[in-house]
């Protein structure tokens, strides 16, 4: 019982179980971050003065080490996945808010004027014009946020085996099985690449309207 894919029993998971866990712990925070970022970004577009302070706050939050978050959160949410996911969600804001703001601002003024002139109210204008045109920028932000989230999940091992694939690093040490560490690093990297590829695919599907040479970037 010491092969590359043999997971020590203390982790209570198979190899694929760990992968599922890892994806959940990495992607749910990004999704939560996106849901928070959309309205926040819209407010920043609507009230220009709001953007610099919001950007400042997300940057400061990003600078707080996850350990510090854990220390505070553990009193409320205990040694759980939630404790790992909350800081990850907060970190995603630093990429997602600017990405959405830039995307929405990139809508040409004459396009917006045309929308207004045709009698689209603010809600329709946002949902039917600004948001779809911002999709490439939003997905670019999501790609950075998910990849960094996938790599950050591993720190969860610090609060009692909540690091999914990251836990293998710890086990590699205590069971003296360096291959487990290699497994952890390689699997995490492959996951990151695959999820990124999926996001690129989603972008391509959602934006048939992009000039091909621009889409290649």
């Amino acid at each position: 019982m010491s092969g590359f894919f043999d997971i020590p029993s203390d982790l209570q998971n198979s190899y694929f179980g760990l992968i599922g866990l890892h994806l959940r712990e990495a992607l749910l925070p990004v999704l939560a971050g996106l849901l928070v970022s959309l309205p926040v970004a819209q407010l920043c577009v609507r009230f220009r003065w709001l953007y610099p302070p919001v950007f400042g706050v997300t940057t400061v939050l990003y600078a707080i080490p996850s350990l510090a978050f854990f220390v505070v959160l553990i009193d409320y949410t205990g040694q759980t996945e939630t404790t790992v996911m909350i800081p990850l969600a907060v970190y995603s804001l630093v990429v997602l808010v600017p990405a959405i703001v830039d995307g929405v601002r990139s809508v040409p003024p004459e396009t917006l004027a045309a929308a207004t002139a045709m009698g689209l109210g603010p809600v329709r204008r946002y949902l039917q014009v600004q948001l779809p045109i911002a999709v490439p920028a939003i997905i670019a932000g999501l790609r950075v946020a998910t990849v960094s989230s996938i790599s950050l999940v591993s720190v969860g091992m610090l609060i009692g085996n909540q690091g999914a694939l990251g836990n293998l690093l710890h086990d590699a040490q205590i069971y003296n099985r360096p291959l487990l560490a290699v497994n952890s690093v390689v699997t995490t990297a492959v996951l990151a690449v695959l999820v990124d590829a999926v996001l690129v695919g989603v972008r391509v599907l959602l934006t048939p309207w992009m000039p091909k040479e621009r889409a290649a970037r």
Binding site: E110, T111, A114, A115, A117, V135, T207, W209
Partner: peptide
Amino acid sequence: TLRRSMGYVIQNAGLFQH
């Protein structure tokens, strides 16, 4: 309602690129 009863054309067309 007023706006939908008036067509509007601008420089560079302002088409919905998406």
